[in-house]
């Protein structure tokens, strides 16, 4: 497929998605907003987890800081929404730089555990600050305009995706991939690994916090438990990994497919929905550990044997 056709298809997809609020029902639009925001989170995680190879559990913290940025600005300071977005993004980026410097020295599981601990600490701190509404939470002024939230979320996803696409063809992105593939090898080739890792973490934090800001204004209520929910971090990882970490479209596909599966399951089998969702995720990890994007690349070559090869690789 040549690049002109690809760009045309991508533009068409964006136009169709952007027009959804005009022909879709309220339920569809609401499903659209939450899915788009999850896709932004998965795409943000993709930058630090998928491209740089650092499995962050701190991204839900960025999300929470972004949400609190908007809530504090609008409720406590009577500032407009966009000021809150900037404030939240600034908090998230500062957090990423200050804590990224020490934490990004750790690798693999140690990095995951350290970021997980940080997320708990931030939640505990926030629930003790009066400005942040402590444990009671903050109630934002309601705005009944789902179409606007939808378009805003779509625009944010577009920005995040264009950024990731830029990574695949820039020196910065190649530096990140080199770090993921072999950090010492990258350093001796001239990659400033510390700077690049912190920048990737901050970029990841920027998109996650903006998603948090939109979510806060849309839901109109915020407390520490919902803002710093660690299961949200697990969700974005599952979505990015399901779709294909380290690919441009994988996290979006993962977010859309898993959101749809979860939506259908919870309306059809309510009680056992969590169980079925778990089965879907386990099956995906066993049968296609490198995500949907990898299937697209290898299915043509190996056919059904692809799944058998993956099961064998697991030694199950």
């Amino acid at each position: 497929m040549n690049s002109a056709i690809r760009i045309a298809i991508a533009l068409l997809a964006v136009v169709v998605l952007a027009a959804l609020p005009w022909f879709g029902s309220d339920v569809i639009v609401q499903f659209g907003i939450s899915t788009l925001l999850l896709a932004v989170l998965a795409q943000g995680w993709n930058i630090i987890g998928g491209y740089t190879g650092y499995p962050s559990f701190g991204n839900s913290t960025f999300f929470g800081l972004g949400a609190y940025g908007v809530a504090v600005a609008m409720v406590q300071w009577n500032m407009p929404f966009w000021v809150g977005m900037v404030f939240g993004a600034a908090m998230a980026v500062c957090f990423a730089i200050l804590l990224g410097l020490p934490v990004l020295r750790l690798k693999g599981h140690y990095f995951a555990i350290a970021t997980l601990a940080l997320a708990q600490v931030v939640a505990a701190i926030v629930s003790n600050i009066p400005l942040f509404g402590q444990n009671i939470g903050l109630v934002l002024p309601p705005l009944n305009n789902d179409a606007m939230f939808y378009e805003l979320s779509l625009a944010l996803l577009l920005m995040a995706t264009l950024t990731v696409w830029w990574l695949t063809r820039s020196r910065f992105g190649f530096g990140l991939i080199a770090i993921r593939e072999n950090e010492e090898g990258a350093a001796v080739m001239g990659v400033n690994t510390t700077l690049y890792k912190v920048m990737a973490f901050a970029l990841s934090g920027l998109f996650s916090s903006l998603a948090g800001g939109i979510q806060a204004y849309w839901i109109t209520f915020l407390d520490p438990a919902s803002a710093f929910d660690i299961s949200l971090n697990v969700k974005m990882i599952i979505m990015a990994v399901f779709g294909g970490p380290g690919t441009v479209l994988g996290p979006i596909v993962g977010a859309v497919v898993l959101s749809a599966v979860s939506e259908v399951l919870s309306s059809e089998v309510t009680n056992a929905a969590g169980l079925f969702f778990g089965i879907v995720v386990v099956a995906a990890v066993v049968l296609m550990p490198r995500g949907l994007a990898d299937i697209v690349h290898h299915f043509r070559k190996s056919g059904w044997r692809y799944f058998v090869q993956n099961i064998r690789a697991h030694r199950i």
Partner: peptide, 8 residues
């Protein structure tokens, strides 16, 4: 001990 970037 060679350090290629295996996935590239």
């Amino acid at each position: 001990i060679m350090r290629p970037f295996p996935g590239l």
